[in-house]
Simulated scan of single mutants.
Amino acid sequence: MKYAYWIITGLLCLMLTVSAGFYIFQNAEVASEFVKLGFPTWVIYPLAAAKLSAVAVILLRKNRVLVEWAYAGLFFNILLAAIAHITIADGEQWSAVVALILLMSSYFLGKKVRPF
């Protein structure tokens, strides 16, 4: 079970890091997608910073409260992204659904494998 946790958490953190990098380095493309989804473009850089911060908190696991907040923030971010894509019916919700499955799996396996 420990290996499953680390594989799933690694995939989740990789997905979030790539997403944050895309937000930073491909800002024009991301901004056009945010406009299509009806979100303000000023939120792109704070979201990238939040995703990278959440990855660090999840991997380091130094403070239980921060870990819970990181998982909760990512849950709402990913869930709302999936809902936004479903709402405009662009068919791009599947990466968010996969990320949500990885997030939930990492969270619940982490409770069993890495107790505080």
Score class of each variant (00 low, 15 high):
residue 105 S to M: 12
residue 44 I to C: 03
residue 97 V to K: 04
residue 74 L to W: 02
residue 12 L to Y: 01
residue 36 K to S: 14
residue 69 W to R: 12
residue 48 A to Q: 00
residue 26 Q to T: 02
residue 20 A to V: 07
residue 72 A to S: 09
residue 34 F to D: 00
residue 67 V to T: 13
residue 103 L to T: 03
residue 115 P to Y: 04
residue 29 E to F: 06
residue 89 A to I: 13
residue 61 R to T: 14
residue 89 A to N: 15
residue 96 A to E: 04
residue 5 Y to L: 09
residue 116 F to I: 09
residue 50 A to V: 13
residue 18 V to K: 02
residue 78 I to F: 05
residue 7 I to L: 15
residue 101 I to C: 03
residue 25 F to P: 01
residue 53 S to N: 13
residue 80 L to K: 00
residue 24 I to Y: 03
residue 74 L to S: 06
residue 54 A to R: 05
residue 5 Y to K: 08
residue 49 A to C: 07
residue 2 K to S: 14
residue 71 Y to F: 15
residue 55 V to G: 14
residue 67 V to W: 05
residue 78 I to Y: 02
residue 110 G to Q: 12
residue 99 A to L: 09
residue 20 A to H: 01
residue 35 V to Q: 07
residue 66 L to H: 06
residue 18 V to Q: 11
residue 109 L to R: 08
residue 68 E to V: 12
residue 1 M to L: 13
residue 9 T to I: 02
residue 99 A to V: 09
residue 71 Y to T: 03
residue 21 G to E: 10
residue 33 E to Y: 05
residue 60 L to P: 12
residue 6 W to A: 09
residue 27 N to W: 06
residue 33 E to A: 09
residue 49 A to Y: 04
residue 40 P to M: 03
residue 36 K to H: 08
residue 14 L to N: 04
residue 39 F to W: 08
residue 68 E to H: 10
residue 71 Y to E: 02
residue 4 A to H: 03
residue 34 F to I: 00
residue 70 A to T: 10
residue 19 S to C: 09
residue 18 V to G: 05
residue 37 L to Q: 01
residue 70 A to M: 14
residue 102 L to H: 07
residue 95 S to L: 15
residue 13 C to F: 06
residue 91 G to C: 14
residue 104 M to P: 03
residue 112 K to E: 11
residue 73 G to C: 13
residue 47 L to A: 14
residue 93 Q to V: 12
residue 11 L to G: 06
residue 99 A to T: 11
